[in-house]
Nucleic acid binder design. Structure first.
Lengths: 221, 221
DNA sequence: TAGATTGTTAATCGATTAACAATC
DNA sequence: TAGATTGTTAATCGATTAACAATC
């Protein structure tokens, strides 16, 4: 019983683990020794039953009547996410967004290390960003393995970039370009689309305005 | 029968509508008159049954044996998302990310209009970004209503910014800062966290490496 | 022991998918 | 009509939640 399903952590749970980890890291810094599922739920914005269920997928690390050991749980979640090692990242597309990510401290502090930057624009290639020389996409030769490729190019270039990255042996892509990327089945793609996020927000706002006329953005002074 | 549930579009469906709309817009530009659920599914990266089920929530707009009218469907999806009007957006936090979003064309082309920029850093306040003067957070006075507030500040400032925006009457927030925001229940918050996305990717990669040793990033030359 | 809190069960809910009758 | 494709049903799957026995 005790050692529950070590494999097969549900996707929905995986999506919440980073949030738990972030809360636990903050707690650890504050010197907190233990925490209940109730309080952790509050910090992560979910329900306590959900926290307990999620954590049960990692094995059992709480103590009945007491709660979870903050340091131990942080370490466990971190290990589950594969964060005990450092992950080399390449960013392709040195526009505003690419530069923003290249200088994002949230990466380094969470085990991600930018090892190369690339772009296709001759005017940008060769320039220095965050202490690194921007390489031409075609000549991209990261010295060492690359775990994650981040695509911050305009939409029309995204597929070509994906092809190059896959050719270099990258198995995980994070793209900010709209549209579906065609990649081999052993390549994992996640997409972040700002316009999609905004459209989901405005859908809800639109619904509220339709449901209760006058309660929408119209009445804001 | 025909007029199905006009209210209560499932959240999962809402999350896919922007993707359909993007594909439909491209098709419309190409002059395509109609499209089958099968082809639209391919373009959006989902299954055809899912497309048909999703669209059935908007009412019925396909023709059996023929498919969907591209222009008509695009208009319908657009209306459902509330995109027939223009949405005024404020961006707070003029670091790299904030500047990237301020100059992001994907916003304007999809009905979002940046009406004000703000920051708390005196060194940044008063400077001009994309033709707009950056305002101090405390003095933020958008001339006109604001539909969506985008928070691109460091994590520690996010809650204060949220409070200010809520005080201005903003009901939809998009934040790039990690951590939960405390807001009134009538305020809708969406969070995009780059580190979370990367951690989900590395979880999968880590799993693969554990399952099939040697198949992970290690073997990339 | 008494109080607190976990880990797990079982019920519920929502989302996905295949299949096919309806129908253009 | 014959072929194509929708809209909907029903089965399945996965995720959430409340409740509570186990137990520190």
């Amino acid at each position: 019983m005790a050692e529950s399903n070590r494999r097969g952590v549900p996707e929905a749970t995986v999506g919440r683990l980073p949030g738990y980890l972030q809360a636990l890291s903050t707690l650890a810094e504050q010197g907190r020794a233990s925490i209940s599922s109730e309080e952790l739920a509050g910090l992560a914005g979910v329900r306590s039953a959900q926290v307990r269920k999620d954590l049960s997928h990692l094995g059992t690390y709480g103590v009945r009547g007491v709660g979870y050991d903050v340091a131990r749980l942080a370490e466990q979640v971190s290990a589950e996410l594969g964060l005990s090692r450092d992950w080399p990242v390449v960013i392709v597309g040195m526009g505003n967004l690419g530069r923003a990510l290249a200088s994002y401290e949230g990466l380094a502090t969470r085990g991600f290390h930018v090892v190369a930057l690339a772009d296709n624009d001759p005017a940008v290639v060769g320039s220095r960003v965050e202490g690194m020389t921007v390489q031409a996409l075609g000549d991209l030769r990261p010295d060492g393995p690359v775990a994650v490729g981040v695509i911050t190019t305009p939409p029309h270039a995204a597929q070509e970039v994906a092809d190059v990255l896959v050719g270099l042996g990258v198995h995980s892509l994070l793209t900010f370009a709209p549209g579906v990327l065609e990649v081999p089945s052993d390549v994992d793609v996640r997409r972040v689309d700002l316009a999609t996020e905004l459209q989901i927000l405005t859908f809800h706002q639109h619904q509220r305005a339709v449901a209760v006329p006058g309660s929408g953005v119209e009445e804001v002074s």
